[in-house]
Design a binder for these strands. Structure first.
Length: 376
RNA sequence: GGUGGGGUGACCGAGUGGCUAAUGGUAGCAGACUGUAAAUCUGCCGGGCUCUGCCCUACGUAGGUUCGAAUCCUACCCCCACCA
């Protein structure tokens, strides 16, 4: 349980297998995001077909609706959703960042005002652990303090130090809740913004509190320039534990996956696949396709000729465009399906190339082609 | 044939003497989106140019009143309703 085996490396890139109570995850892997205990628009069976090995859900949002006890009474997230493969819950820490303006931070915890009905809800490290325990995912994340990408040293330091203190409280509460050899593990999150010294202190603090079954990198892709994110990953790579999976939270776009994998990241999650899917942007090897664009009006070809997903093997670009123009939910679903498949497949391809020793050249060529048309 | 109502930019629809190239909405076009307050949001949307401004065309058609009209007057054309 909670084992991670590295099977091959290519420079910093790794191919491994993570074993969790509900199954194993072959890495590198993209984890689709299902904040409200649903990957928006997608059926669990579709996710399985798309090669999703593990999906996320969110502590804060499920606490508000339907409430963790409701989920627990229904048998936990797996029974509730019928998703029987591994799951991971985010702690609500990201909402400290994304819901700025609806929350106030204190050392004790964070008070949120619900965007749904205006009611007040306090999340502390302990409460986050209790909620996540009730939800029952394979992996719970520590409650952390995420600051914006352009945060100055002092603010980034405050968030980083607080995250370490909160990690201690999370671990203590999680240990109380957890049976020996329990079915849920807890992962810490490296913070420190874009500042090398803070990132280093964060890793040191986490390692000193170890061992862990996985380590996350948080506070990236939150407004900092892309080269800065790459620099931070490069600085972290040599000091992060090698024997556990490294999870880059909230990333990313296709190119970000490859950039991350080549810098030693094993797991990713991102809402962009489904959000962009709903908003009509599809990822393709040559960049992106605006599904609503007039150029597709009478294009009989597939969205991405190289893709094996249902949208690409069944429908024309013209029809997909029509579905968006007609405002039908099938269009939103199909492009979401494609984007999720694009990322799970990218993980599979990277893994194959790491295992057979061709990762470097392949990923360089892939990125060159993808960036050629101005993709980000 | 008579009476009344009405004809506004791709469509619907405000405006009833100057602040009107003309409110809104729809459609259209482009862009954004990275641990989801997002099937959302932003911009453009008569034409042209030497493009922080200028010129042309435009509110059924033609004329008129006025310093100035989509807005007032006259005639005509067309649409709708009711009456014959």
């Amino acid at each position: 349980m909670f084992e991670f085996a590295v099977e091959a490396t290519a420079g910093a890139a790794r191919a491994g297998t993570l074993t969790l109570p509900h199954g194993s995850v072959r890495t590198p892997a993209f984890m689709p995001v299902g904040t409200h205990a649903v990957v928006r628009g997608l059926h669990p069976e579709e996710l399985r077909r798309l090669g999703a090995q593990i999906i996320l859900a969110n502590t804060y949002h499920l606490h508000l609706r339907p409430g963790e006890m409701e989920v627990r009474v229904m048998g936990g997230l797996h029974r509730f959703t019928t998703w029987d493969r591994p799951m991971l819950t985010d702690s609500g820490g990201f909402q400290v960042f994304s819901l700025e303006g609806l929350r106030t931070i204190a050392e004790h915890g964070v008070e949120f005002q619900s965007h749904i009905d205006g009611s007040y809800h306090t999340i502390t490290p302990e409460i986050s652990m209790e909620i996540q325990w009730s939800l029952g995912a394979d992996v719970a994340m520590q409650f952390d303090h995420v600051v914006p990408g352009q945060a100055p040293h002092a603010l980034a330091e405050e968030g980083m130090d607080r995250s370490l203190r909160w990690l201690d409280r999370c671990r203590a509460r999680h240990a109380e809740l957890s049976d020996p050899g329990g079915l849920q593990t807890l992962w810490p999150i490296v913070q420190g913004g874009t500042h090398a010294d803070l990132r280093r202190r964060s890793v040191d603090g986490i390692v000193a509190r170890g061992p862990w079954t996985g380590v996350a990198i948080g506070g990236l892709s939150v407004g900092e320039p892309k080269p800065v994110m790459h620099r931070v990953l490069e600085e972290l790579e040599p000091v992060l534990p090698r024997e556990v999976p490294r999870y880059l939270m909230g990333v990313g776009f296709p190119a970000d996956l490859l950039e991350g994998i080549s810098r030693g990241v094993d797991l990713f999650d991102c809402v962009a696949a489904t959000r962009n899917g709903r908003h009509g942007t599809a990822w393709v090897p040559d960049g992106r396709v605006n599904v609503k664009g007039a150029a597709l009006r009478s294009d009989p070809g597939p969205l991405d000729p190289e893709c094996d997903c249902e949208a690409c093997t069944t429908f024309s670009r013209a029809y997909l465009r029509h579905l968006f123009m007609a405002g039908d939910m099938l269009g939103l679903r199909l492009v979401s399906i494609h984007n999720v498949r694009f990322l799970t497949r990218l993980g599979e391809q990277a893994r194959t190339h790491i295992l057979d020793g061709t990762f470097d050249g392949w990923s360089r060529a892939w990125l060159r082609r993808h960036y050629a048309r101005g993709a980000t």
